[in-house]
Design a protein around this nucleic acid. Sequence first.
DNA 1: CCTACCGATCGGTAGG
DNA 2: CCTACCGATCGGTAGG
Lengths: 207, 207
Amino acid sequence: MQHPTTFRKPRAERWQQVLDVAAEVFSEKSYDAASLQEIADRVGIKKGSLFNYIQTKAALRDHLVREVYLKEFMLFSQWARDGGGAIERLAAMVRGHLEDFAEDGPRMAVYLNEVRRLDPAARKQLFGNRTFPDLFAEVIAQGQAEGVIRPELDAELASRAILILVRSVHQWSLAPPREAAGQLVQTILRGHSTPQGVGILAAMDLT
Amino acid sequence: MQHPTTFRKPRAERWQQVLDVAAEVFSEKSYDAASLQEIADRVGIKKGSLFNYIQTKAALRDHLVREVYLKEFMLFSQWARDGGGAIERLAAMVRGHLEDFAEDGPRMAVYLNEVRRLDPAARKQLFGNRTFPDLFAEVIAQGQAEGVIRPELDAELASRAILILVRSVHQWSLAPPREAAGQLVQTILRGHSTPQGVGILAAMDLT
DNA sequence: CCTACCGATCGGTAGG
DNA sequence: CCTACCGATCGGTAGG
């Protein structure tokens, strides 16, 4: 009587909605500050009903993290392999990552804020032995072999620096990310390049 | 009877201890996940007793944030004003900030994670009209006037990039931060510099 | 997918 | 600085 005709979405559809809403709420507040109650409210179901889709709150978070990681890491691997010299590939990685993070805000934010909390076992299983910094580091090493990246750079340190910068852009929303991205790519890669590498960059027109 | 001789520390001393412990707990877990109960336990008093020192949990966090900001911003202003050309001053700012953040881990972590949550009014009152990026941007603009910083750079974007990098170092703990710092300063500033600026940097020996 | 409920813990207060 | 307590909310479960 209280719920005359219970509108019941198809399971798969509802599950996607739960994920979308959870990503929103987790990113607005933090994971800790977010409550399943609020997620349920926004989805339009009762809190108890959430447990037909999830096992625990933490599992919901972990699912979101895994999802983003798997998708993004695959793309990333392709960019690292595809055409051109080391500088061109680095530029593709930076650009691509930058745009993806600008696209789907909530999910990316959850990923960034919560990866660290995956318990070590799950992390290891997920990442295997190759992390984002690793992929960057390999291309940077190739760039050093080609003579376009400054040879004295520590490849791991350089990789981390690039990643941090790329991933920070989504917090800004100052300039239209389109232009900001181009400038940032230039600045980041210039910092790592030899004069020869800078020449390549200057000819690339990354805006 | 339960507490035969209540060891009562001097108020000021206890207050400092509360701040230290709170910074620890807030940085280990997040602010949201941290409980006053745990802080009280580590301090060695009852939770209710905390309220002789704080008004609310949020006020405790805000106090920590303010404290760090005030100290660091003063130092920062000095580095921005002190000796040398724009490149030298930028280097001093980057280096100094880098070292401070490496020093007192917990407090800095709390600052970074929680500044955004200061309500806008408190933020405005605290920051006035000059923020960290502003200070950087001013020196960068001077560097452009001197011809040592690439003239096409957006000063605000560049400032943010530098800050992000500098503040990310405390998450790494890979290489001894001493050496890492030197490399990072070089890489960051090279990315922003004209050939002339790069020359100055090369002569500086920042390790 | 809901109702109805659980134990635990949260921030905070009163009164001493 | 403690004891004793408050209302609210948390994640999660049982049974339908």
